[in-house]
Simulated assay, not measured.
Amino acid sequence: MVYHVEDVMGTAVTIEITDPLPAATLAGLVERTCAWLHEVDRRFSTYREDSEISRLDRGELSLADCSPDTRAVLDACEALRRETGGTFDARAAGRLDPSGYVKGWSVEVASARLARAGALNHCVNAGGDVRGRGRPEPGRDWRVGIRHPWEPDRSAWVVAGTDFAVATSGTYERGPHVIDPHSGEPARALRSVTVTGPDLGLADAYATAALAMGMDGLLWLARLADSGSGYESAAITNDGHAYTSGGLPVAPDDPTADPPAAPEPEPAAART
Rank of each mutant, 00 (worst) to 15 (best):
D226N: 12
S62L: 12
A126D: 03
Y231V: 11
R42M: 10
D19Q: 09
S67Y: 12
A90K: 09
L202N: 09
P263A: 02
R58Q: 15
A207W: 02
R133M: 05
Y231K: 02
A35M: 13
R271Q: 00
D199L: 05
G230S: 01
D50R: 15
T237E: 03
T171C: 10
G170E: 15
V40Q: 14
S51T: 12
A209N: 02
L63M: 09
V109G: 04
D204I: 06
G100W: 10
A110G: 12
A269N: 01
A189D: 10
T256D: 07
A117S: 06
E39Y: 12
H122V: 08
I146S: 10
T18E: 04
L29V: 03
T168Q: 08
E108R: 09
D216W: 12
S54L: 07
T70A: 08
L29W: 02
E264W: 10
A23L: 09
V124M: 14
D97A: 06
A262H: 13
L96F: 06
M215E: 06
I236E: 13
R91E: 00
T70N: 14
F88N: 11
L80Y: 11
D89C: 06
T272Q: 03
F164D: 00
S106Q: 12
W150F: 15
A90Y: 03
L80Q: 09
P138C: 04
A79F: 02
E151W: 09
L200V: 07
V158T: 15
G201M: 07
T208H: 06
S62F: 10
T46V: 14
D75C: 10
G132D: 01
G134C: 05
R58W: 10
K103M: 03
D216H: 13
G104A: 13
W150S: 03
D41C: 11
E39S: 08
A76L: 04
T244L: 04
G145P: 00
D199Q: 09
T196D: 02
P22Y: 11
P263T: 13
L200M: 04
T208S: 07
R113L: 11
A212G: 14
G128E: 01
V40E: 04
R147K: 14
W36H: 04
C77V: 15
P255W: 01
V166W: 02
P136Y: 12
G94N: 01
D141K: 14
T237M: 06
P198Y: 05
R116F: 02
N125H: 08
V159D: 01
G161I: 11
G134M: 14
G100M: 05
G139Q: 13
G217T: 03
R55K: 10
A189H: 03
R223L: 07
D69P: 07
V102I: 10
A76N: 11
T194W: 03
G170H: 06
D57M: 12
W220Q: 10
P255D: 01
V158L: 03
M215R: 08
W220D: 15
V109A: 11
T87F: 03
D7S: 04
D180T: 07
I17D: 00
A270M: 02
L74V: 12
R191A: 05
A222R: 07
T33L: 06
V8H: 07
T237Y: 04
R271H: 00
E60N: 13
P260R: 02
L219G: 13
E52W: 01
A270F: 01
P265I: 12
R174K: 14
G28Q: 05
E6T: 09
T70P: 06
G184T: 13
I146A: 04
P260D: 00
P20F: 08
E16D: 08
H38A: 05
